[in-house]
Design a binder for these strands. Structure first.
Lengths: 354, 354
DNA sequence: GCACGTTGCTAAATCGGGTTAGCGCCCGTA
DNA sequence: TACGGGCGCTAACCCGATTTAGCAACGTGC
């Protein structure tokens, strides 16, 4: 059927040396161990001609390192989010010749246990524990056996694990600044959460942090939040009803929606009330979901940097794998959330610069 | 640091038997090889008490089977598509105790080569070669070394590899039938491709097949396609312009959009012309992209069964791994595309039943 | 009393590479 | 001439499992 793989023994025989010598040359330790130039060349040539590739399974058995990392998330299927995060992780791993095992737990602790076990059985060199929406998680104790990093999640109990998260507070500031820079000072409303720091959907770390950033940046400019509507779930229909509710009593000049799906609902409500984006009402949002650039006018939004989050997590994991000292534990890495300036924000009418 | 893993030698010692005996019992071959009940029980108990788990890396070296399959796709990040496909593959694999290596090639042949090599080096038991949109692909020759399945792709040259694809022709029929069942017989227009079988975006297998199904079902009912607009790329903006163009000259009663993103553009164009969905114009589409259920009115669409495609691919792969005979090669498996009946289709006005 | 079969288990080889310990050989020196 | 020491390479063991070949002990038949 398929021709047997070329092994190091084949290379050694072809070069007329022992397996040991071949191993030393191919692992680059030939120099320090005084292998002659001649033998080194013979081995390298034989390896090249036979297209020798080391069997990573074998190396894994002997050295315990499989050049493989496990990526465990609660779900990989929800929205494009996961895809980009995995893509970032994949590429960062590939840069170092590592591969990724993907697993999803669906939030099921038992599944998670089995999955971690399966990865353990395959001797992964490290683990990324990812959550698809920012939240605090219970870190399974089985994780301690191998270097690990939390992605988009914070540990419920303090652990020595580093975490990689989007910088949501700064994102909140960014969203507010987009409006401030356009000249908005009055009639700024929030859709999705607020105005108080406790007016957030349950368990949503992102909501709290975005709110903190928004209030801080507005406050620093002496601008007051005119009002807010909380959404129990950040879906278009709740954005629609919350915004309709708001428009029944107020005339906003700008909306900060807590994510793009809410903004989608808000667009519809504004349309229902005959209000135009951005001429009558500016809208800024969070996430940069694919629909943000499909909406008309295109939505200005502060992007969740999924790709960068994935990359960063793997980078941090490699740092973790590489170091032997035990200092500097539990560090939290924040990844910046960039503003995608599009068409939904304009200076308030009757307040044009000039 | 982490306590050393329990090995079979530990189990054997605890049970007071040889490693051979432990292996025989734990692999279930104890019975046929006449290991006594007593010894069997001792081994099983020891394994249980020590929480023994076989080291799959070691097994992989010895037996050549790693309980791992490689999932190679051109991209995993585009739309949610990939996520669900991977999820299906993941679960089908998990049911059999297998894990998945994920890799993406970005359509780069060199990257693909390296990736397949890396998977080969890790002794994967099988490969899924996935494409994120249905198309024909060049099958790399390196694939022949291990069982493999094409997912959402057809081989350019005939190969013995089985393929798993959505049943696009039947989906085309389904879309047409949705309109026929609602009573539509006139003013049915296509947006995205058609009316001729050559009027399709380049390389799009899906376009051709959907078109075939649509024309067949309409034709069987004696209904003529009133007209069509081709879109060079199936994005909202092209749907918008194509539909605007159509509405400049015609007054459709129903639109079959070739995917949901096109339908999104079509909704906007209809709105621009003051036409209501579904009262004035019914709309049916393909893919069941997440936005389909966010659009107002919610879009009736024929779903791409990503999850099922992923599952099916892995199921077929296991069948491939399991069989030794070489018959029945290159089979094409079609996965049904279910209709998601929502709100965008109604009987034509002035043509109400009753 | 001896050959032969069964029963119940184990020693040892194997997978493919990494690593340690050490073996010949040549050279220089006393 | 014997000895020490660097040089260049290799034998042999190890990782953790599977698998082949075979060994003791016991019973049975003649």
């Amino acid at each position: 059927m398929s021709p047997r793989r070329v092994t190091m023994a084949d290379v050694a025989k072809a070069a007329g040396v022992s397996r040991t010598t071949a191993s030393l040359v191919l692992s680059g330790r030939g120099r320090e161990l005084r292998i002659s130039q001649d033998v080194e060349q013979r081995v390298l040539r034989a390896a090249h001609e036979l297209e020798y590739r080391p069997n990573i399974v074998s190396v894994g058995l002997r050295t315990g390192t499989t050049r493989t990392i496990g990526f465990v998330s609660d779900t990989v299927a929800t929205s494009r989010l996961a895809g980009d995060m995995i893509k970032g992780a994949l590429e960062a791993a590939r840069d170092r010749g590592f591969m990724l095992f993907i697993g999803e737990t669906e939030g099921d602790a038992e599944l998670e246990r089995l999955l971690l076990q399966a990865m353990h059985d395959r001797q992964v060199d490290g683990l990324v524990l990812a959550s698809m929406f920012t939240r605090t998680i219970e870190v399974p104790k089985a994780v301690t056996a191998v270097p690990a990093v939390l992605l988009n999640a914070l540990p419920k109990q303090p652990t020595p694990l580093p975490a990689v998260l989007p910088d949501e507070v700064e994102a909140g500031r960014s969203a507010a600044r987009v409006l401030l820079d356009a000249g908005h000072r009055d009639g700024v409303y929030l859709i999705g959460a607020g105005p108080g720091l406790h007016d957030v959907p349950s368990e949503s770390v992102a909501a709290v942090e975005r709110l903190v950033g928004i209030r801080e940046a507005l406050g620093a400019a002496g601008v007051e939040v005119a009002g807010a509507r909380i959404c129990p779930d950040w879906q278009p229909e709740y954005g629609l009803t919350a915004t309709r509710d708001l428009l029944g009593t107020a005339r906003p000049r700008a909306l900060i929606c807590f994510n793009d799906r809410i903004a989608m609902g808000a667009y519809q409500a504004l349309d229902d009330f005959g209000l135009r984006v951005p001429a009558d009402v500016s809208v800024v949002s969070f996430d940069d979901h694919p629909i943000a650039s499909w909406m008309r006018p295109q939505l200005t939004t502060v992007a969740l940097p999924h790709y960068e989050l994935g990359r960063k997590a793997v980078d941090v994991l490699f740092a973790e794998i590489g170091r032997s000292d035990t200092g500097r534990t539990g560090q939290v890495h924040r990844v910046p959330m960039p503003v995608r300036a599009r068409e939904s924000v304009k200076p308030p009418a009757g307040d044009l610069p000039g």
